[in-house]
Write a protein that binds this DNA or RNA. Sequence first.
DNA 1: TCACTAGCTTACCTAAAGGTCAGTACCTTA
DNA 2: TAAGGTACTGACCTTTAGGTAAGCTAGTGA
Lengths: 125, 125
Amino acid sequence: MEAVPQAVPLPLAFADGVFPAGCPSRTLLDHITSKWGVLILIALSEGEQRWSDLRRRAEGISEKMLAQTLKTLERDGLVSRNAQPVIPPRVDYSLTERGYELSGLLVPLVAWAFENAEDIINSSR
Amino acid sequence: MEAVPQAVPLPLAFADGVFPAGCPSRTLLDHITSKWGVLILIALSEGEQRWSDLRRRAEGISEKMLAQTLKTLERDGLVSRNAQPVIPPRVDYSLTERGYELSGLLVPLVAWAFENAEDIINSSR
DNA sequence: TCACTAGCTTACCTAAAGGTCAGTACCTTA
DNA sequence: TAAGGTACTGACCTTTAGGTAAGCTAGTGA
């Protein structure tokens, strides 16, 4: 495991101090990178899905956390909710334009994690 | 806030179920997307830095969390630690090759968050 | 002799994230 | 008549992430 001397250029905005402590980006980043936030965004990057689909796809999520996470992402304007007044209820969730912008950056990251995870986690203990 | 009908193609690997619950990628993702993990990786993407530099750049981090986060990232082979046997001690941290690979994906994400955060967080309450 | 440095570790505690389970509304199917 | 599906909410409890503060090491400068 050798150190490598190159550096990825950083946006000047956070060249010093990464970014300040009370900064809104910290909050947004917390929403996006929360345990279930990532998974929901990734799942939705494939297109509109129902509540029950999301429950299955984000394996292990509780209904409480699904509701909470979706609400946060909706408030942030990343996810849009479409409820149809039918019985039994049917609610579809999808990414907004902004959500797709984000998922375009998130998918490669998660894909990388997926590809490297076994190697990394198993060899690190 | 309109829904948009396009979809980002997902790696087939997690086309179904995003990825399984006990999967190593969940663990790795937790390390990477932890509150301080992201910031440390971003800070190091600019190049080697000392302990005390990192403390300053990741504004608000406690010594305990800095140590813990660095250890995790080191165990995962993303960060390398170079301690010089001098007094007072001097320890440099840098990204490994794998760490740079990752930070190349992480930086655009964080930059996006930085650019959109104010807009999103302020208008969502 | 004392304080001061940098890079930690440890013990203790709090706050927040998250889990479990029960309940609800309304209709359909067995 | 009873059970089941769907999309939730709320109460309550546990687990974990993270904060605070003190201590340690081994030298150097005052």
